[in-house]
Design a binder for these strands. Structure first.
Lengths: 375, 375
DNA sequence: GGCTACATTGTAAGCGGTTACAGGGCTGTA
DNA sequence: TACAGCCCTGTAACCGCTTACAATGTAGCC
């Protein structure tokens, strides 16, 4: 803080060479005589020289930083939400997003990149400008859970490589990485109908702007119908990804006189936990009276009572693949725009009425389905 | 991607002024004639000009980026760990750290900063160099959970403002923000002994390098002794912050013939969940046969059966305060080095045998204890 | 020994802004 | 009318590093 850090000029002076030579020695690209290189290295050592990444970025155009933008959930109108904003954030925290972020950070670090986090308030998507200004800082952008409208994505993608993480959307303007919600909900529906004889089912959504939530709801509904079941409108409940949200909507649902369906699938595990709690509070037992399932397979929920039947997806792999895709775009700008779909797996546990057998989970097949799209 | 984005030169040319004027109009500091400013603004509008943050950073020295460094837990030797690295990460994910990160990001965004994430492998702390190179990119650094040794912190702090987040440590070279582990564990011990008549207790650690884990263990032990109880060495179990870890060590403990203590406090909630699972699997009931408590109060665990008695701390406030402290240092470099201790709160629920009353949690006192230290 | 060719190294022009300093235009006053 | 003084605006250096191009040194060859 006191004295400004040594620059390439200081090193050059100390080693008795020009800055160009120091730069070449640093990047070890061009030819530098071994003895010269040694002198330079020694000088750098003595001065504790650390190259300035920003200056390097300015002149080379490469910043070794990847941006990751996610929506900051602002839970409003939730009857169980606490009034302090802070607590609301807290409540909505520990979501699947965090695992994705970790996976992305890990892979980015392996490839030599840093991750720049940037959240966009979900109700206040003025974020376009802030996103544009990231443009100068990062080499590429990963957008979680549909932060922008397609037109904005297209606009952004013209300035900088973009990877989209979410939902159904196969954006024409960017690479999309998503999880196979379709297949996931279909296998769940099949299990519920075939094995547990479910005929009337229900669904509890995440936040209703989320493409993942929408995709899961839609897929579940059509799958249930495909297998001969039904979902009444009154059993399609809108929550907000949180346990408190799940609890609230289920408590409200139980106030109604309509008979409950035989099963509720939830858009994520946290929601399922809240739903089960509300059911228990109302005197109903899971899975005896009603089946409840989740989505994500966050590690905690298999310790629940009953252990949660859910869909397993690997958030960290999702994050990693997103980074890989982005870096591939950086290395080869002409890379085709495409959609990458990651596999999911039905994990059957106690909450649907199956045996409560918690075996060490087998490694999920790391197969990545590549679906080439018309660029 | 095609054509390079417009620069200040383009704007200047289009507006018929010099770049200096454009810059002044941009930063609205110096005096610019309204009519001139309008011309400039119009030109920026037409060109869709977005100032290049990197160039701005290079010349002004201010980057509007804060770095946050955390340890990436690498769970090894855990009998329940899965062999795929990815899964290990997954398992260890969804930790308290994530909430802290969110809180930090949120506050940073409010103040106009971005957050640059950087993880340091906990077994491979060669991270010093990478941290040093961040020096050029970020304006300040937040170090989670003691990433570096004190001497390295001191070294780093000489180059860039540093805020430490963790444990006991009142580092002489940086601002420290931590949670009041001492008070937390003391109130927990007091509750267990006074209310539940516990005389023999146990503790399950997080990862043993973590200062938070160490602080909690030490504080719990001395508090238990202060209130007349004891902790046998055989009941001080080493886990790794994860549910699987808690499950594993408790399962191992149950193999031994030594009688179990009446209560186990765990270093975090996830661990407690695993511990309870192992106890149940061994035929013991919580809280009837044994009391188990957690730490953090992550939102899910109050939906557990039994709901977890735990210590509530606000991770997002922790993150926010860290950012506030860091920004304060940036604004006033002469700010005194000090330690900020955040309050905790004992949350009594079912797992210690108290009534299972889940009331909406009251907002935690936002009082921040400032402890001035000799700089 | 003189010349060519390649390996090294130096010079200097950016990268896209900020900002100290200088200069031009106006207004007010003597 | 001349000049001091304030407003605005322009010029150009600089932030720290990369790199095209020029310059130098040296080795190989006739």
């Amino acid at each position: 803080m006191v004295d400004s850090p040594p620059t390439i000029y200081d090193v050059a002076a100390r080693a008795g060479v020009s800055t160009a030579t120091v730069s070449r020695a640093l990047n070890s690209l061009a030819s530098v005589r071994p003895s010269t290189r040694a002198k330079v290295m020694a000088a750098m050592e003595e001065l504790e020289f650390v190259p300035n990444v920003v200056a390097r970025g300015l002149s080379s155009g490469k910043h070794w930083i990847l941006g990751l933008v996610f929506t900051r959930a602002v839970v409003e109108g939730n009857p169980l939400a606490h009034d302090s904003d802070t607590l609301v954030v807290e409540e909505a925290s520990l979501l699947y997003t965090d695992i994705v972020i970790r996976g992305a950070e890990m892979r980015a670090a392996e490839l030599g990149y840093s991750l720049l986090l940037s959240s966009a308030d979900e109700n206040h998507p003025s974020g376009m400008t802030s996103m544009l200004s990231l443009t100068g800082t990062v080499d590429g952008l990963i957008l979680l859970d549909r932060v922008l409208r397609e037109e904005d994505v297209a606009y952004l993608a013209r300035r900088i490589p973009v990877v989209l993480l979410a939902g159904q959307g196969d954006s024409p303007s960017a690479v999309t990485v998503r999880v196979d919600n379709q297949h996931a909900m279909r296998s769940l529906a099949e299990h519920l109908v075939r094995v547990h004889g479910v005929t009337r089912a229900g669904f509890v959504t995440g936040s209703n702007e989320s493409p993942d939530s929408v995709a899961r709801g839609d897929a579940f509904r059509s799958a249930i119908e495909e297998f001969g079941g039904t979902i009444a409108d009154v059993d399609f409940l809108e929550a907000d990804w949180t346990s408190a949200g799940g609890e609230a909507v289920m408590a409200a649902r139980m106030q109604r006189s309509d008979p409950l369906p035989e099963a509720f699938a939830c858009a994520n595990d946290q929601t399922a936990v809240g739903v089960i709690y509300a059911l228990n509070a109302g005197g109903l037992k899971v899975p005896e009276d009603l089946v409840v399932t989740g989505f994500d397979d966050i590690s905690l929920t298999r310790y629940f009572n009953p252990p949660l039947t859910t869909i397993r997806q690997s958030g960290s792999i999702l994050g990693q693949v997103a980074v890989d895709a982005l870096v591939a775009m950086l290395d080869d700008a002409e890379d085709v725009k495409r959609t990458i779909v990651l596999p999911t797996e039905l994990v059957v546990r106690g909450s649907c009425g199956c045996v409560e057998d918690i075996e060490p989970r087998p490694a999920m097949a790391e197969v990545i389905i590549l679906k080439s799209e018309v660029g």
